[in-house]
Design a protein around this nucleic acid. Structure first.
Lengths: 241, 241
DNA sequence: TAGTGGTCTAGACCACGTG
DNA sequence: ACGTGGTCTAGACCACTAC
């Protein structure tokens, strides 16, 4: 067990994370400057810088020289570079357009409630969307969201969107998705999904199972994503650099 | 175009990377201590630390308090935590055993020579192996290696291995794999691979296409990996933290 | 011009590993 | 006891943004 308060910079980092989790700073405004934080936490600027640097490395904050340090903003560009891992077979990387298929309020199954860290049978939304690149259907999404976390969500949020879903979470609910864990399988397409993707039944699809997390590992949403695998693929880079 | 020599720490980092690329320091011995490097490059220890910190963040060096700073070592454990992205459907993560299927010397196709950054039709090895977890066949690998980069490679290197392939590259050839890029597709299994994996033909398989790189983006090997997808899956984490 | 983050320094003191 | 990396400080100077 590592104490997060053993060192000054860990203590500062923990305090800043806690303030971020409480949504004290919106994603468009600068957090307090380094000298101010240094005096507030009674440490040197170097120690503040170290704490902030770690949060920057974790994609939680971004620094802008001459302007300040900000909460990361879920722009489409950010999404494309950090979270979106699907490209065409030719290696083209772009964001798809989204079309709403269905919007339902249901009760969470045991599996889903566990992944969302809510009680079994709590109310959730299930949203299905069809994602297309240049009008070519490519991906079927099933999204699961806790109603408690996202009260008063309705169809209209999904039908005409000019922002990413995580951008909406941040703008409307003040919830910032920080990291994501995914598992990928190959499965034969069933009738419903194959038809949407304009594929013959039983052809192999990539199936991506994703859970997104906010501060301190709090689950935000879960989704199952079926991908037209002969035209699109998943990509990944490992090892840093 | 970013000049890598604009700042002292970038200059030091570049110099260290160059020495690493030239294999000046083996992976079992410490690189020079921080005070020595500081005096050698005429900068303060803080600047040396910054350069080293970036190399540590890129998984190139590891620090060990009280002992020194080392070139990262490709132990099985390191492989499992950094590069190996396959787990069982129950979420168990372990390294497979490898059995040699075939070892050939062939000429590179255009596609492969491009990925390995060698001339078309240069001599390469093609190695096929069957990977198993607890004696259950799970993965078929096709590995492509440049003969120029790995002279005098023979079957025996692959038949009885107690180390990972990248561990062998590092120990025998002094080549350290630093990062990896992968694309993942779903494909129907052909007869040859389905049989090896004890699957019916045409069932969906995960197909992972990997290129591994050493210092400065130099390609080391390429492999195509076919995975028994109903028992095993690919996993990934995005966003850091 | 004032305020922000970015680089770099020189040094104190601590924690750890080896002899 | 000594040398290693780890933390933290206080301050100089630079680069960029805003007003």
């Amino acid at each position: 067990m590592v104490k997060t308060t053993e060192f000054a910079y860990k203590r500062v980092k923990y305090a800043l994370t806690e303030l971020l989790r409480q949504n004290k700073w919106r994603h468009n405004q600068a957090i307090p400057s380094e000298p101010i934080l240094a005096s507030r936490y009674q440490v040197s600027i170097g120690t503040i810088r170290r704490a902030i640097n770690e949060l920057v490395a974790e994609n939680i904050l971004v620094r802008e020289q001459g302007r300040g340090t900000f909460v990361v903003s879920h722009t489409p560009d950010y999404m494309l570079n950090v979270f979106f891992r699907i490209e065409s077979s030719e290696g083209v990387r772009e964001l798809p357009n989204s079309k709403l298929l269905s919007f339902e309020k249901i009760r969470a199954s045991k599996v889903i409630s566990k992944k969302l860290a809510i009680k079994p049978y709590e109310k959730i939304y299930r949203v299905k969307t069809l994602l297309s690149f240049r009008n070519q259907p490519a991906i079927v999404d099933e999204i699961y969201l806790s109603e408690k976390m996202f009260p008063n969500l309705s169809e209209s949020f999904f039908s005409d969107r000019n922002e990413t879903l995580y951008g909406l979470f941040q703008r409307v609910y003040g919830i910032t998705v920080l990291n994501i864990s995914e598992t990928i399988e190959a499965i034969p397409g069933n009738q419903y999904i194959s038809k949407l993707l304009k594929l013959k039944i039983n052809l192999p699809l990539l199936c991506v199972n994703r859970v997104a997390y906010a501060y301190k590992g709090k689950p935000v949403d879960m989704r199952i994503r079926y991908i037209h695998s002969s035209k699109y693929r998943y990509f990944n880079n490992l090892g840093g650099g």
